[in-house]
């Protein structure tokens, strides 16, 4: 069912998520603190300085409306979205894996999720970069 596509696989609390590698620019370690953005929803963690660029960082857990599992965000997945500088704060990044069979995800439909896949016997929720982008834009 379709050629395998390389994905960046990461942890959000204890769940596994993935984004197509083509949609990810790089993975960086968050700075000690973010600069807050005035009057935006709490899903916006703030902005950071990445080599002279000001990157807006979002808490992916809050963006997906998941409960807080007490795990701190250790990594930032930077999206490659044209002129937007967006980063997603995630619990940890596991690596790059090829995923081929993406089937419909259980639970309620969401534009941010394109489906689930199986990786080494474990479930991975595959996110839709355009859906994530739209969800971010809706916050502002």
């Amino acid at each position: 069912m379709g050629a395998p596509v390389r994905h960046v696989v990461f942890l959000l609390q204890k769940e596994r998520y993935a984004l197509p590698l083509a949609a990810v620019r790089e993975v960086v370690v968050p700075p000690g603190r973010f600069t807050r953005v005035p009057r935006v929803p709490p899903a916006v963690s703030g902005v950071m300085n990445l080599r002279g660029r000001v990157v807006t960082v979002l808490c992916l857990r809050r963006l997906l409306a998941l409960p807080d599992g007490g795990q701190p965000g250790e990594k930032i997945v930077l999206l490659d979205r044209g002129r937007r500088d967006l980063g997603l704060l995630v619990t940890d990044v596991e690596g790059i894996e090829s995923l081929d069979r993406v089937s419909a995800a259980p639970g309620r439909q969401s534009s941010t999720v394109s489906g689930i896949a199986r990786l080494k016997g474990l479930a991975v929720t595959v996110l839709d970069p355009d859906g994530v982008d739209a969800a971010v834009a809706a916050l502002f």
Partner: peptide, 21 residues
């Protein structure tokens, strides 16, 4: 940059010598 240009009340951003935006 997007989406910060949508936040009302901000006219720009800068990075101080300390590296802080």
């Amino acid at each position: 940059s997007r989406p910060l240009d949508r936040v009302p009340g901000l006219s720009g951003v800068t990075i101080l010598g300390s590296g802080r935006p």
